[in-house]
C-alpha cells in the first residue's frame, strides 16, 4: 500500500520531468527562432556588421541550433544558467533573488487563498440560496470578471492614494533583500493575488460541496443521527476537496504567470518584472530560464494536486498496484 503510493508518485515525477523536457524544447525553439537578434537589440542601429558578428560569436549564436540547445540544456543541468545578455551578470545571480521574492509572494497568496476559498465555498453551499451564498456568489463573480490590474488599481486608490493613505502604492524592496523586510509594501500585491484566485476556487468548492451535500451518503449520515458538524467535516468535506484540489492547482499555476502584471503594477522586484525587462531587451538566457521556471510551477502544482486527489480518494488510492 505505502509502496504502491511511492511508486505512483515516482511515476508522476518522471512524467513531470518528461513534460518539462518537452517544454524546454518548445521554449528554446520559440525564443531562438524569433526573428529578432539580441546582438542588434543590444548594439542598436549604428552597429557595424563586424561588431554584431563578434557579439553573436560571443553569445554562441553562430553555432548550429542543436548545439546551442545542447549547451543550454547541459548548462542548466550542471547549474550554469548562462550570462544575461543585457546585464552581463550570471543569470543565476540576476534571477535567483527575484525567484525567491516571487515565490514568497505566491506562497503567501496561496496560504491565504486556499483555506479562505474552501471556507467561503463550503459555507455558501451550506447556506445555499440564502444571504451569505447570494452575497459571496455576487462578489466572487464581480472579482472574477475583473482583470488583476484593475483589482490592483482599485486597491491602490482605496488604500494608498485617493481615499486612505494607509499602505504604500509600490514596494520599496531592494533586489536581494529578503522579501519579508517590506511587509507593508507586500500587502497590496498579496491582496491583489488573493482576490484574483479566491473567487474561482470558492465557486468550484461551492459546486463540489453542493453536490456532496445532496448525495445519498450525506442524507444517510443525517438519518443515522450524526450532528451537523460531523456531517460537514467527516462526511462531506473529504469528498468535496478532491475536485477542489485540481482547480486550486490550476489557479496557483495561473498565478505564476499572472504575477507578472501584479509585480509590474506594484513595482515588486520579482520574476514578473524581470521577465518584462528581459523581453524588451531580447535577453534570451533570462527569458528562457524564467519560462522554464513558470512551466515548472505549472507542472509541480498539477503534480501535487493529482497526488493530493489520489490520497483523499480511497477508490483511487486502493486501485494503485
Amino acid at each position: 500500500m505505502k509502496a504502491s503510493i511511492f511508486r505512483f508518485v515516482l511515476k508522476r515525477i518522471a512524467l513531470g520531468l518528461l513534460t518539462l523536457f518537452i517544454v524546454s524544447l518548445l521554449i528554446f525553439a520559440v525564443t531562438q527562432a524569433l526573428p529578432s537578434d539580441p546582438a542588434e537589440a543590444m548594439l542598436g542601429r549604428e552597429a557595424t556588421p563586424e561588431t554584431l558578428e563578434a557579439l553573436r560569436a560571443d553569445f554562441g549564436l553562430d553555432k548550429p541550433i542543436v548545439v546551442q540547445y545542447g549547451n543550454w540544456l547541459f548548462g542548466i543541468l550542471s547549474g550554469d544558467l548562462g550570462t544575461s545578455y543585457a546585464t552581463s551578470i550570471p543569470v543565476s545571480e540576476y534571477i535567483g533573488p527575484r525567484v525567491g521574492a516571487s515565490f514568497f509572494l505566491l506562497l503567501i497568496a496561496a496560504i491565504g487563498s486556499i483555506p479562505l476559498s474552501i471556507v467561503v465555498g463550503a459555507n455558501a453551499a451550506l447556506h445555499r440560496d440564502r444571504k451569505f451564498d447570494t452575497a459571496s456568489s455576487l462578489i466572487s463573480l464581480i472579482l472574477a470578471a475583473m482583470p488583476e490590474f484593475v483589482v490592483g488599481t482599485i486597491l491602490t486608490i482605496v488604500f494608498s492614494t485617493t481615499i486612505w493613505q494607509l499602505l504604500p502604492a509600490v514596494t520599496y524592496l531592494e533586489v536581494g533583500a529578503p522579501p519579508w523586510s517590506d511587509l507593508q509594501g507586500l500587502t497590496l500585491p498579496v491582496l491583489t493575488l488573493l482576490l484574483a484566485v479566491t473567487p474561482y476556487v470558492a465557486r468550484v468548492m461551492r459546486a463540489a460541496m453542493v453536490e456532496v451535500l445532496e448525495s445519498d451518503y450525506v442524507e444517510m449520515a443525517r438519518l443515522k443521527g450524526m450532528d451537523e458538524r460531523t456531517v460537514l467535516w467527516r462526511h462531506a468535506m473529504p469528498n468535496a476537496v478532491g475536485p477542489a484540489f485540481q482547480v486550486i492547482a490550476l489557479n496557483l499555476a495561473y498565478l505564476a504567470g499572472g504575477v507578472i502584471i501584479v509585480e509590474r503594477l506594484f513595482n515588486f522586484p520579482g520574476i514578473g518584472s524581470a521577465l518584462a525587462d528581459a523581453v524588451r531587451s531580447r535577453d534570451l538566457p533570462v527569458i528562457q530560464f524564467l519560462a522554464l521556471i513558470i512551466a515548472g510551477v505549472y507542472i509541480l502544482t498539477n503534480l501535487l494536486a493529482d497526488i493530493g486527489t489520489v490520497l483523499v480518494t480511497p477508490r483511487l488510492r486502493t486501485r494503485l498496484k
Binding site: 448525495s215 445519498d216 451518503y217 442524507e219 444517510m220 449520515a221 467527516r234 462526511h235 473529504p238 469528498n239 483523499v312 480518494t313 480511497p314 477508490r315
Partner: peptide, 8 residues
C-alpha cells in the same frame, strides 16, 4: 453503493 460514504 451511494449511501455509504466512499471516503470512510
Amino acid at each position: 453503493a451511494s449511501s455509504l460514504n466512499p471516503a470512510l
